Computed example of a mutant assay.
Amino acid sequence: MTTFTASAPPPGARAYQLRTDRGDFAVVDAPAVPGIEQRGVALLLPGFTGSKEDFHRMHEPLAERGYRSIALDGRGQHESDGPAEDESAYAQGELARDVLAQAAALGSPLHLVGHSLGGQIARAAVLLDHSPFVSLTLIASGPAQISDSQQQRVKLLHDALAVMTMAEVWEAILAMGPPEEVGGPARGYGRVEQLRQRWLAHKPAQLLATGRQLCVEPNRVSELAAVPLPFHVLSGARDDTWPVTVLDDMAVQLRAHRTVVPSAEHSPNLDQPLPTAHALAGFWDKAGTAP
């Protein structure tokens, strides 16, 4: 397993391994600020090549609004273990069942949040069993497969992983200028060396399987619309993975609350963490605390 020196958790948060009946998952768990009304608990799922650190700058403002927030690395991501070569372990249904196991281990009704790929995994979990959840927020996560341009980038990654080491692929990604869904945004996360170490910690099979999922995901919005949960579709003002107009249409179909974060692109949680956190908290305030 690749050694990774993670950045320190945000103030008041702690990092640990969450034990579930489907294995252990690395989490950053930030409690609500003591002395104020405790309003709920949120589970935050990162995107493709992402990690729990992508939500670091949102924990504190969420805590100040009364929300405990738990961000995690999914199976085979960063500091959560998983098989290096068995792609079947990363089928969407398996990852969705992981989310239900995480919810069971946390033991609280949860506001579920997924960024990009994490949003599609969150959707799959809710379609399996919505009962642990109070609401679902999709951050820059569209109704079906990613855009043609991003599919080409994922194909390049797939081809590269077939003939190159993870370290060699990282150097190639940097040479291209890392796109959001392939290389991970450098801004807001830390030094390039930290990003490199995070990349090296990912399991190749996880990248191959989830990259393929992003390219073939069917449109399941009609199924999701039948689930009795409040929905929130949040995005930046620009997005080259799912066009903002596509996200607008999805929100209409879901009768979802819609937030567009100014001056943000595919990762509003990194680009504009404070307004993104406030938008989440505002939605949760209205959604309530009971499933």
Results as ranks from 00 to 15, higher is better:
241 T>I: 12
38 Q>C: 01
209 A>E: 07
184 G>Y: 11
39 R>H: 14
116 S>T: 02
143 P>C: 04
239 D>V: 07
113 V>R: 05
284 W>F: 14
62 L>D: 07
199 W>E: 09
114 G>T: 09
217 E>G: 12
146 I>H: 08
159 D>H: 04
154 V>G: 04
273 P>M: 01
11 P>L: 02
96 A>Q: 06
193 E>H: 07
200 L>K: 14
209 A>D: 07
48 F>M: 15
221 V>I: 14
95 L>I: 04
39 R>V: 11
288 G>T: 13
252 V>T: 08
277 A>L: 00
276 T>D: 08
142 G>W: 06
235 S>Y: 02
153 R>F: 11
227 V>D: 06
89 A>L: 10
91 A>F: 08
87 E>D: 10
219 N>S: 10
101 A>F: 05
208 L>I: 15
204 P>H: 13
18 L>C: 09
290 A>P: 13
179 P>D: 12
3 T>S: 01
171 E>R: 03
192 V>Y: 15
258 R>V: 05
64 E>P: 13
280 L>K: 00
183 G>K: 04
210 T>F: 15
210 T>Q: 09
166 M>Q: 12
243 P>W: 02
216 V>R: 00
136 L>M: 01
4 F>M: 05
285 D>P: 02
41 V>A: 13
168 E>T: 13
127 L>M: 03
97 R>F: 12
88 S>N: 10
80 S>T: 06
196 R>D: 04
57 R>Y: 14
139 I>W: 08
54 D>L: 10
104 A>I: 01
276 T>P: 09
283 F>L: 01
251 A>H: 07
248 D>C: 00
140 A>F: 06
40 G>S: 08
179 P>H: 08
104 A>R: 10
2 T>D: 05
167 A>P: 15
290 A>D: 05
230 P>E: 08
19 R>D: 11
196 R>K: 12
124 A>P: 10
171 E>H: 07
111 H>E: 09
95 L>V: 03
95 L>T: 06
254 L>C: 00
150 Q>T: 06
122 A>K: 00
154 V>Y: 01
170 W>V: 03
204 P>W: 14
219 N>K: 02
179 P>C: 03
128 L>Q: 00
73 D>W: 15
288 G>Y: 15
174 L>G: 09
72 L>W: 13
77 Q>E: 14
